[in-house]
Design a protein around this nucleic acid. Structure first.
Lengths: 143, 143
DNA sequence: GTGCTTGCAAACCCTTTGCAGTGAA
DNA sequence: TTCACTGCAAAGGGTTTGCAAGCAC
């Protein structure tokens, strides 16, 4: 699921924020990329969309967009501070070859979480599941 | 599963490293704590065990111990660079109240991973599953 | 026109590196 | 005794903050 500019504008407006070129640029970069990007990478690619884009603004924008749920933070062993466009799922599949980030449906997870809740007594409110491996394309390349 | 000093000494020796006071201190702190600790926290607590312990040594020791598999890196939305004593599992349950890190058995995960592999074609080599919520003790406190 | 937003520069903090003294084997 | 290890100090790099100029509304 990708977010359109219209949807984004609406979300920003509703939260009392303005729709600006830098914000559009950051979101566009994340939507056009399948990878989890670092702030630095977002800045580099964002400058092709909004020439005057500053790194500081990227940081502020990423924080804002993450707060609004328009982008999602991606943590992994390799790159700890990645950002990706927000889809519905919280489950990420990382390719260690090309760093692309894919989301996948994860039907069995709820049962699993329920089992853990029963065993431990925790009230579980969030989960983070990241699988990493090699995507079909990179497997083909290395073969 | 906790590691004893003897086991640790053996692991270090086998890899060609020396068993030193700072290394013992760092491991002891992580074993006595149920939380995922930041390098800074390990340093603070470690100084009660090894008075002269320096922060730099904590960083170097954590990296070494992680490499040897004696401690494990813990990533989460809140604290990105945490370390915890290594157990058998890779599944962590974080309490957002007291920051304790519990490990839990996760029987259904292999099936889930296999399903994702079939759907996506990825060769999945690693996984990271972190659940977070509120532990029973913290639930009781806030009640 | 108003004031939220931006970009630059500088401050900040966490982490890493260099080096001489120290202690484990 | 040897040399891996430590701790200090300083460098390094990524992130945040302050402020005047610039746009969205």
């Amino acid at each position: 699921m990708k977010l359109t500019q219209t949807e984004m504008a609406h979300t920003l407006r509703q939260a009392g924020y303005r729709l600006t070129q830098p914000r559009l640029a950051v979101l566009q970069v994340l939507e056009e990329s399948d990878e989890g990007l670092s702030p630095e990478e977002v800045h580099q690619q964002g400058k092709t969309v909004c020439v005057s884009l500053g790194l500081v603004t990227v940081y502020r924008t990423l924080e804002l967009l993450a707060e609004l749920g328009l982008v999602r933070r991606v943590h992994s062993q390799q790159r700890c501070h990645g950002y990706a466009s927000a889809g519905a799922a919280r489950h990420h599949l990382l390719c260690r070859g090309c760093h692309r980030v894919t989301e996948f449906p994860c039907d069995g997870l709820d049962d699993l979480i329920e089992a853990v809740r029963r065993q431990t007594g925790y009230a579980i409110t969030e989960h983070l599941l990241e699988l990493s491996g090699v995507c079909p394309e990179c497997q083909a390349k290395s073969a």
